[in-house]
Nucleic acid binder design. Structure first.
Lengths: 191, 191
DNA sequence: CCCATATTAGAACATTATTTCTAGAACAAA
DNA sequence: TTTGTTCTAGAAATAATGTTCTAATATGGG
């Protein structure tokens, strides 16, 4: 099988997030210093700087999307509320990935030079979410703009007050719920 | 008096915002291409890359703070609501600066290498806002966390759904107001 | 007009970053 | 043990970026 790795992808991705938030940029040299992994190993694993950054972004997005889409399907008293609350929960469950999800832009990690296969992966991931939200809107009768606001806009804005640095308090969830109800309930077709 | 400038600070700051959002980074070379201003002129005006970026950030922050603080003092039916709505209004009134305010982090524009005078300016600006929000909380009896959420967290999360690219719709303000009322009104000492 | 001043201009230089490359280490199977 | 494979390691080569510098351009006042 050959030699075993001495480092995990996640170690490197976490360092990427920390550096982006702290320095506003990611240098290969900084990754080497921050993780203790040698340059050669990084290039062996990720091919290029662009590849490394893109995979960090896709890793984060994938982890969040999995939870978000599962929650969106979940039935509940208030449709979609569970999905809205998935954002603060994700921040507590995966603080390293949350740094990337909440504090960074896609354009910091992916560009036109990103390997094509990874660009395609991103497009596919985005498509899945768009399809799911569209279905949610058709099912509930909610306008797309309202759904986006309650499901993503408000929750993201809320957790961003704490990241990076502080943990996202449990009490925040109740406030996100208030905001969600305030914008969503008036638009729900009363069943 | 000497020769007159052929470019304004704002031209350059706007380019900085566009590039950060588009490329995730700011190269001096890109600023030259994007603005048509020569490298020499940029260094003459701003001293260094760090200085240029910091001044772009301070310029944006100053413009927003001026409006926000004025709105926060303004009396109204619901205390603070005008300040909460200042975020979407700022995005419409100053779309270039909004790009920096809403889509970028401070760490992308200022670091430990930033000229000390500009670091001090930032600290002073942040202090002024913190003092004002503290006073607002004392005056209304609102917990700080709730005030931050309603005044900043939710409005910022909302406009971020549109920037960069789309203009922030007027209709969004009503939704921000709903969210603001939902989290703030229950906590207001009934007068 | 001529001087002092402020600004522009971009080539040359210095610095810093990314990438490649070669040698060697760890591991599994034959 | 030998062999094939995968991974580590970091110095060297390559590429790119930030900065300086000198000359030239524009403007207003004496």
């Amino acid at each position: 099988m050959g030699r075993r790795s001495t480092f995990s992808d996640d170690d490197v991705f976490a360092a990427v997030g920390r550096m982006l938030v702290r320095d506003g940029e990611v240098r290969m040299q900084s990754v080497v210093e921050e993780t203790g992994v040698s340059v050669g190993s990084l290039y062996h694993r990720f091919g290029s700087r662009e590849g490394l950054l893109a995979r960090a972004w896709l890793d984060t997005l994938g982890a969040f999307h999995a939870r978000f889409l599962a929650a969106l399907d979940q039935p509940g008293e208030v449709p979609g509320l569970a999905a809205a609350l998935e954002t603060p929960r994700f921040c507590r469950a995966e603080p390293d990935k949350a740094l990337i999800l909440v504090c960074c832009r896609r354009s910091e990690l992916m560009s036109d030079n990103t390997p094509e296969a990874l660009q395609a992966e991103l497009a596919a991931a985005n498509d899945r979410v768009m399809v799911a939200i569209d279905a949610f809107c058709r099912h509930t009768g909610l306008p797309l703009e309202i759904a986006r606001l309650g499901l993503i806009g408000f929750p993201l804005g809320a957790v961003k007050l704490y990241l990076p640095g502080e943990p996202v308090p449990e009490a925040l969830d109740a406030e996100i719920e208030r905001a969600y109800r305030a914008v969503v309930l008036p638009r729900l077709a009363s069943s």
